[in-house]
Amino acid sequence: MKFVDEFRDQALAMGLAAAIAREAVPARRYSIMEFCGGHTHAIFRYGVHDLMPENVGFVHGPGCPVCVLPIGRIDNALELAEEHGVILCSYGDMLRVPASKRRSLLKAKAEGADVRMVYSVDDALRIARGNPSREVVFFAIGFETTTPPTAVALRTAKAEGLKNFSVFCNHVLTPAALNHLLTAAGLDVDAFIGPSHVSSVIGSRPYEYFTETFHRPVVIAGFEPLDVMQAALMAIRQLNEGRAEVENQYIRVVTRDGNRKARTIVDEVFERREGFEWRGLGAVPDSALRIRDSYAAFDAEKRFSIVTRSAPDAKSCECAEILRGAKKPVDCKLFGKGCTPDSPVGSCMVSSEGACAAYWTYGRFRQEAA
């Protein structure tokens, strides 16, 4: 398959591994954060981690939208489903994330709440059209990648006069999180592998601020194993040469200006929140979106007077530290013991983009945790 098979070629992978080994200066260490959870899973699924020299290490970042959503917002979703009796539509991963007292939307569904898994916001629109006497709320999450479809759905609902449809908006912004990591969180890494799908929307331009201000290279990479390896090589070369630039390995998809049409639609429907709580990062200024007043009739927070209260993570769960890049999943004493995909304690073990799920799914750390 074009743009897949050739990026999983074993001979090319070994050639890239050899090039990285040649160019990684033995006397120094290279710490590279892959911001996106999709990259973390690629690293472990294809064994990229094992092809790196000992002095080149990956640090897992907060680029998992399910993982970074704070417990208080999931409590709000439970409140919508259980107390307001809405049809709550959500992506599958969100159903299993533990909220306060380890309750989840899946448990609420088992107890009678009308919670439905959807594959897209269009599914939620169809449910609203088919149930005109019921309130239907779409639990919107995600970075810049999933924001445009939500914006289109809100435009559609407004055009159709779909009065029983609303959105509980939890869309968050990548550059704000990156800025917070480098300032308030005090992250100490040498370079970043930038997210691919997010960058296809926002482009490579927003990362130029970070290379200029913090002198950290950013290399945008695709999700295939050779994408990640080539990006690591590009970052190492920059560091060796004393450069800090935005480089785009994912040129088959990402441009400097991204998808202008998608950004225009998002700007029409959403505006920035002054602050938003992230699991692991705390309150991050200008890091999330809310629905503009012109679409207030479709804003679930206003329609149902939602008030979010902070709630602590489960005791002994290290998900917050993992999302900050301060710890790895195996540093958590619950990993593989009290916390597994069948019985997750933290969101990092639930999501298909979570770091703990990556460590567990591909098996290499199971024996160590047993």
Rank of each mutant, 00 (worst) to 15 (best):
T255F: 06
M234H: 01
V253A: 12
A232P: 04
R256I: 12
R216P: 10
P217R: 00
R252K: 06
G258R: 07
N259M: 11
E208M: 09
R260T: 11
R260W: 11
V218H: 07
T264F: 15
R260M: 11
T213G: 01
E245R: 14
E245I: 15
D267G: 13
G222M: 05
P217I: 06
A232T: 14
A244Q: 03
E245M: 15
V246N: 03
R263W: 15
F210I: 00
R256C: 10
D257T: 15
V218N: 02
T211Q: 03
D267H: 15
D227V: 02
R216V: 11
R216H: 11
K261E: 14
Y209V: 14
A235I: 01
N248D: 10
Q249N: 10
A232N: 04
V246M: 07
R243T: 12
N259H: 13
D257P: 15
E245V: 15
Y209D: 13
E241G: 08
I220C: 07
I265N: 09
Y209W: 12
T264G: 11
I251P: 15
F223E: 06
T211K: 07
N240L: 03
P206D: 02
Q238Y: 08
V228A: 06
E247R: 12
V246I: 08
V266N: 10
N248Q: 10
V266Q: 09
I220Q: 03
R216L: 12
N240P: 04
V228D: 03
V228F: 06
G222V: 02
R260I: 14
V218I: 10
R260E: 11
N240A: 02
P225M: 03
R252S: 09
N240Q: 03
R243D: 13
Y209P: 08
R260N: 11
P206W: 03
K261L: 11
P206K: 05
E208R: 13
V266S: 11
I265D: 08
T264D: 13
D227L: 02
I220Y: 01
I220H: 04
L239K: 00
L226E: 01
T211S: 08
N248R: 12
Q230T: 14
L239V: 01
I236P: 00
V269T: 01
Q249W: 09
V253F: 09
P206V: 05
V219T: 04
G222H: 00
V253T: 10
P206H: 05
R260C: 09
K261D: 14
V218D: 02
Y207W: 05
Y209N: 11
G242C: 03
D227Q: 00
E212A: 12
L239H: 01
F223G: 01
M234L: 09
N240E: 06
Q238L: 07
G258H: 09
D227R: 02
M234Q: 05
R216M: 10
H215Q: 13
Q230S: 13
F214V: 06
G258A: 11
L239C: 00
A232I: 07
E224V: 03
T264R: 12
T213K: 13
R237M: 01
T213D: 06
D227K: 02
N259L: 12
V228M: 05
E268V: 07
E245P: 15
T211H: 06
T255L: 08
F223W: 02
H215G: 14
E241L: 14
D267F: 13
V246L: 05
R243F: 13
I236H: 00
